[in-house]
Design a protein around this nucleic acid. Structure first.
Lengths: 196, 196
DNA sequence: ACTCCATGTGAATATGTATTCACATATTAT
DNA sequence: ATAATATGTGAATACATATTCACATGGAGT
């Protein structure tokens, strides 16, 4: 029998194990069995700490939302120039994905959006806020003359997020067959050349 | 008992039914039972025409690849101006997705990339060609002075594809809660403003 | 040292899924 | 018209997964 730990600790371990499984095997493979194995405990023990799979999904969504996506707003609230903020948000977003490949897999999986609508809705809210945050930074850049005058902030924000998302996608589906950071930097160099 | 049809016809029906299921319920729900139901036949009959699920997946990938993604090369080979070609490729890509929401779901699903590597590899090849095609059109645009001089063709192509992919993603995960065509046109207007 | 309770576990249960099989029926060739 | 063949189907099989249950055990408070 493994060491006993409090539910508070076990919950964190289980969520991390689940995130690892998604990163390595995808949401399809996010079974109780796989989570238990990855967390080094038996399946039944999972149920001591979570009422079921749905609660694990919700906890995972909560972790991803607060830990990862809440970050952009803090950067946006700083006092640096818009273009610097944008670059920082971009690079830290890429770094998070590189660290936790399960994040984009989970956030954009069919499963979440088709079978866990309540979780999908709360994630959609956070994504909406994220888009608005970036839109605001870009609008500030235009207002300050740092970025092209005719540029549409919302559409440019969506283009940037698409660039991030597609990079993450190519990286995860190719099984990390290229270095994501250098690739992201090349894309960024070209992007700032486009927007200013 | 339903009408009897040749295997050639049934194969097409089954593939279309499968594509419909992916569009409506996601790859996770792409079960033999769901396909059979959607195609209006019993489960056992699926096996008269396909050896199993893997063969259906392969046929679906083949359909998507040839029917949908083969299109861009034809447009690129035409005699119009690069920017016009780019717009045509972009809009027809969006139109295909609007018509078959299952396409992006299938092409970018965990399942394909983690449990059907051979299919993933053939799709990756097609995606690579697609990226190269668009890169070529953009490079031509730069050479002809239609697009910004300093712009990197490959990175700009990836940015455009990211924009398409993210639009498709937002559209499918929101359950088609907005009109994709007008949204795509707004994004395009902003994009051409960035690249020329 | 003893009791209580939170935590840990193997075995059962229920459900869903892929696949096979024996049999039924329609279409085609003779 | 009949035989041969291709197509269609309900039932059975084998396996995976989510969840529950009865029982085990280790640590906290007395």
């Amino acid at each position: 029998m493994i060491e006993k730990k409090s539910t508070r600790v076990r919950k964190e371990e289980i969520v991390q194990a689940a995130l690892g499984v998604v990163g390595r095997k995808g949401v399809r493979a996010l079974t109780i069995s796989a989570i238990a194995h990855s967390a080094g405990m038996c399946e039944a023990n999972i149920y001591r700490h979570f009422s079921g799979k749905d609660e694990i999904f919700a906890a995972l969504a909560e972790f991803i939302g607060s830990e990862v996506m809440g970050n952009a707003a803090a950067i946006a609230g700083g006092s640096r120039k818009p273009l610097e903020k944008l670059e920082t948000i971009y690079l830290s977003h890429i770094a998070r994905i590189a660290e936790h490949p399960g994040i984009p897999r989970f956030v954009f999986s069919d499963d979440i959006h088709l079978e866990h609508r309540n979780i999908a809705d709360s994630l959609a809210l956070r994504i909406g806020n994220y888009i608005e945050t970036i839109t605001g930074v870009i609008a500030a850049g235009v207002a300050e003359g740092e970025l092209k005058a005719g540029l549409l902030p919302r559409e440019t924000a969506l283009t940037l997020l698409g660039m991030i998302q597609f990079t993450a996608l190519r990286w995860t589906i190719s099984n990390a067959s290229f270095e994501i950071q250098p690739e992201a930097e090349k894309l960024w160099q070209n992007f700032i050349n486009l927007i200013r």
